[in-house]
Computed example of a mutant assay.
Amino acid sequence: MDLPLVVGSDGSESSLRAVDWAADEAALRGTPLRVVYASLWERYEGSALARDLGKPDAQVLAEDIVRAGAHRARSRQADLPISMAALPEDPAYALVREGKNASALVVGSRGRSGVVNVLLGSVSLFVAAHADCPVIVVRGSHDNQARMPVHGRVVVGVGDDSAAAVRFAAQEAERRGALLDAVRAWRCPAHETIDHPLLAGAPERVYEEQAAEALEAALRDLPPEAKVQRRTVEGTARRVLLGAAYDADLLVVGAQRRSGHFGLQLGRVAHTVLHHSPCPVAVVPERAREHSRA
């Protein structure tokens, strides 16, 4: 049985846009959709929930919210199998647990806290950092359609350990009939000079060539029919990926697991794009390399 795509909904406009995106994505994948609401979300959002729904606090029931999310998804994808759950627990931990039996998690960029849209909500950030499965944060103010991509490009940031992110991005691009734009950022350290024996004459060229070689290595397992654009771009990974995301339908980044921490921890690149990307961002867990001890 296919694992469902899980979407978190708290009734906010951001989460309902995430429901729309998730419904399209589930239909694209041919998998069921599960709409989840955690009833302790009010701990983060305050009385705005009741006010926005036009009801007294006592009448705002978890079932109202999760049913509204499921209805929204069904109105968008009528034939999609949809289940729902109203969970009486902390939303961040509830969604992370749901991710253990999900093909992916989808969340909005923020809840009802009133924080400006450029910043990511605390629940979404926690889920992206700790879930076992890929997490898609639906960002951006343009039309976020999963089935009918607006730009026809899925961007993946290729780092030193990006195998899972590359596979995920390639699958997303194939589902959409979109181009996979594989981007590797590189920089020439300021302290490098032409006096260095390996860099004589063109230090920038050496670093660019190394980036191109790393990019090719990361893409070598993709099928030959995959539509891939390879790019090496000078600059910080954060700046390069944010620039690439402006005309993309999805930005995919990997995030390493670190031993001794709970679940998945976000690096600076993933953290930055989650806060500032103009398009939806998928954070894909990467398995840390095993190092033998002497």
Rank of each mutant, 00 (worst) to 15 (best):
R112S: 00
V118N: 02
D132R: 04
F126Y: 00
V156Q: 02
A129C: 13
S124L: 06
A164Q: 09
V127M: 00
R167H: 09
S113V: 08
S103G: 06
A164C: 03
V150M: 08
L125Y: 03
D161E: 14
S109R: 09
S124W: 12
A146V: 06
V166S: 11
V166D: 08
V156E: 08
Q145Y: 14
A128V: 11
L119K: 12
V166R: 07
N144F: 01
V155K: 00
R153G: 10
M148Y: 15
S122N: 07
S162C: 08
N144G: 07
G140S: 03
A131P: 01
G152Q: 09
V156Y: 10
S141W: 07
N101K: 10
V118M: 13
S109T: 11
R153K: 15
V127F: 01
V118G: 09
R110F: 01
A170T: 06
V154H: 03
S103V: 13
L119G: 08
S109I: 11
G157D: 15
A164D: 11
G114E: 03
D161M: 04
D160Q: 06
A170N: 04
A104C: 01
V166P: 07
A104K: 02
S113T: 07
R147A: 04
D143H: 13
G121D: 05
F126A: 01
V118L: 15
N117D: 14
G152A: 13
V137Y: 02
V166A: 09
S109A: 13
R147G: 05
R139A: 03
S103F: 07
V150C: 10
G111R: 02
Q145K: 14
A131H: 00
V137N: 10
A102W: 02
G152T: 14
A128D: 07
A164S: 13
H142E: 10
A104T: 03
F168N: 06
G157V: 15
D132W: 09
D160A: 02
S113W: 01
N117I: 04
L125Q: 02
M148E: 15
H151F: 15
V166W: 06
P149K: 04
H151C: 15
R153L: 12
H130D: 00
N117Q: 15
V156K: 03
D160I: 02
V154P: 06
V127N: 01
A165F: 03
S141T: 14
H130M: 07
G159N: 07
A128K: 03
H142W: 07
V116L: 13
I136F: 08
P134G: 04
V106R: 06
A104V: 01
F168R: 02
S141R: 15
N144M: 09
S113N: 05
G114Y: 11
A163N: 12
G157Y: 13
N144H: 08
G111D: 01
V155D: 05
V116K: 14
N117T: 12
G159F: 08
S113P: 05
V158Q: 06
D160M: 03
L105D: 06
D160H: 04
L125D: 03
F126L: 00
D161I: 07
R110Y: 05
A146S: 14
D160V: 01
V156L: 11
V107D: 04
F168V: 12
S122Q: 05
H142G: 10
V107W: 06
C133P: 12
P134H: 05
V115S: 12
A164I: 11
Q145N: 15
S124M: 10
Q145T: 14
